[in-house]
Design a protein around this nucleic acid. Structure first.
Lengths: 137, 137
DNA sequence: TTAAAGTCTATAGCCACTACAGGGTAAAGA
DNA sequence: TCTTTACCCTGTAGTGGCTATAGACTTTAA
């Protein structure tokens, strides 16, 4: 399988695969006489693993740790779980932030009555009571 | 007011203020004889406006539009509202994505029984049924 | 035979900052 | 007055996770 086939089967861009190889997330595959990368099914499995991790929001560094753990001398999967747990905490923090954001933005949009821009409640709220000086812009 | 004072009063890093000037979000202030930037209260208002927009997740380009609208010839604030609305849609989309992520990650963490790594349900789920070949890592 | 599609390396761009290096200036204490 | 410390300047490079080009080569299909 060449890099294009791997890309198609994994839903990844060719450039992304080469990028993963450059940063050490994908192993360097053997090459054909003309220098083309030659992949086997294990490479596809690895790439799918990477993409699933990324889709779940794990960072490259976290994935590096997961890979190291999977092939390392550790007996228990406690560390794997703790990585996932910490990431879940991050996600929940982001969720809370976004929810607050949604409320604030919703209020902002609601406040707009569509009047002239000099009375725009949205801009007023963003400037938060400060007179918008005319000497900018 | 010099740049450090502006930074302190706005909770911004000095470098960020210079960056905003470089990309045209902050006006170029007058300089002291020795070349120091000299700011007035209007600059602080503008910077606070920028920071509030950023805290609400507006992109630099969106902020540029908002500033242009605030000082442009447009009569109504319809465009301002539509920018805010579109951004709110983005936020809601991200919220939905994150909620799905939270569910998936929660299930992942729950599936872990803390056993040996060879039976790690988390890694299994990430590899999704594929045997984790031992020739990587 | 030739054209199209694929592949290679190397490099630069994206966003919104952040962090230096290597210099000059200002304000306070001794 | 001298020195120390804190500030300020410009310019450049780095962050993460890709994505996009340029310019050359190879393979495949018509």
């Amino acid at each position: 399988m060449r890099i294009g086939g791997l890309a198609a089967r994994s839903g990844t861009l060719v450039e992304t695969i080469r990028y993963y190889e450059r940063i050490g997330l994908m192993p360097t595959p053997p090459r054909s006489p003309s220098g083309y990368r030659q992949y086997r099914p294990e490479h596809l499995q690895r790439l799918l693993f990477l993409r699933r991790c990324r889709a779940l929001g794990f960072s490259i560094e976290e994935i590096r740790s997961l890979i190291a753990l999977a092939s390392g001398p550790d007996r228990s999967c406690r560390t794997v779980r703790s990585i996932a747990e910490r990431h879940l905490e991050d996600v929940r923090q982001k969720l809370a932030d976004l929810r607050r954001l949604e409320l604030a933005l919703g209020a902002l949009v609601e406040s707009c009555a569509g009047g002239p821009i000099a009375e725009c409640k949205i801009l007023e709220a963003l400037a938060q009571g400060a007179e918008r000086s005319t000497d900018f812009g």
